[in-house]
Design a protein around this nucleic acid. Structure first.
Length: 271
DNA sequence: CAAAGGTCCTGCTCGC
DNA sequence: TGCGAGCAGGACCTTT
């Protein structure tokens, strides 16, 4: 799925093409996503102007006159902006047609994504209220990780993938940042020094920034709003490279399951 | 049959 | 014993 860089790429891609436009029509083809898409949207959204497009964690927030549409891409979702008349395909579940003849269309084969509506401030929504800091924002650093990690015994990989600790770090970038920081993914969170957490925080921010620059990582489903893939897959150092030589020491890259997720690491370089 | 980029929810364990 | 925080596992769904 879309991790933070893919959602940010989508956010930046769709914003200039639909911001300021007025909704003409809303179609729900498949309401059964993670939660049902509110059936009131086709009635309530037309006539409202799209004021802002923002990202918080992996949620996209489309702020209209009367409230905010909260979108999540789940594991396999993507959003595209197409011209009016463009025919929908399989797994195209939801779309908004705007008065500038553009369609914002959600595709999500696995249907782990979500489309929700709130008329209150989006930050107060139950899905957003308890989220940790943005990894590219001012409240995220090694001290934050060190403090949160100090009372937990979970593997550090689980710590940084916990959205209450820091948002936006998914399975790919967790492996990448831990490799770059030289920290073993299974190391207990309470057995890592402040100094090493400083390094880890810096690597998390750096790898996310680099991935955003490349338009995200496409392994299979992800596409940018114009249909192109993301190009950061070529820059991955460790993710998905089981058995290949470590780019640092040459020893074979290992793979094991940590917290029910596949984890890639070099047993020699990461301690 | 297993695994794939997410994350909420439930129910258990642990320590005070 | 009770409580809250932390934690593991299950659930959701389709495609390869």
């Amino acid at each position: 799925m879309p991790e933070l860089p893919e959602v940010e790429t989508t956010c930046r891609g769709i914003e200039p093409r639909i911001k300021g436009a007025v909704v003409e029509r809303v179609i729900i083809r498949q309401a059964k996503l993670r939660w049902p898409i509110p059936t009131t949207l086709p009635h309530d959204l037309p006539g409202q102007r799209l004021r802002r497009v923002e990202r918080r964690a992996k949620y996209l927030l489309l702020q209209f006159d009367q409230g905010t549409l909260i979108l999540h891409l789940g594991m396999s979702g993507s959003l595209r902006v197409l011209e009016r008349g463009s025919p929908p395909q399989t797994h195209d579940h939801f779309e908004i047609t705007f008065d500038n003849n553009r369609i914002l269309r959600l595709r999500d084969p696995r249907r782990f994504g979500a489309v929700l509506w709130t008329s209150a401030p989006a930050a107060d929504h139950s899905l957003l209220r308890e989220l940790g800091p943005e990894p590219l924002g001012p409240d995220f650093d090694g001290t934050h990780l060190h403090q949160t990690g100090s009372r937990r015994r979970v593997a550090v990989k689980n710590l940084i993938m916990n959205s209450k600790v820091v948002v936006g770090v998914g399975n790919i970038y967790a492996s990448e940042s831990l490799f770059r920081a030289g920290i073993h993914p299974a190391r207990p969170a309470n057995r890592i020094s402040q100094q090493r957490y400083d390094r880890l925080a810096a690597e998390i921010s750096a790898v996310l920034r680099e991935a955003i620059k490349a338009g995200g990582t496409t392994l299979r489903d992800f596409q940018q709003e114009d249909g192109r893939p993301g190009y950061f897959a070529q820059a991955l150092l460790i993710y998905g490279k089981t058995g290949e030589p470590c780019p640092n020491c040459g020893k074979p890259i290992k793979n094991r399951t940590i917290g029910q997720r596949s984890s890639y690491y070099c047993a020699h370089c990461q301690r």
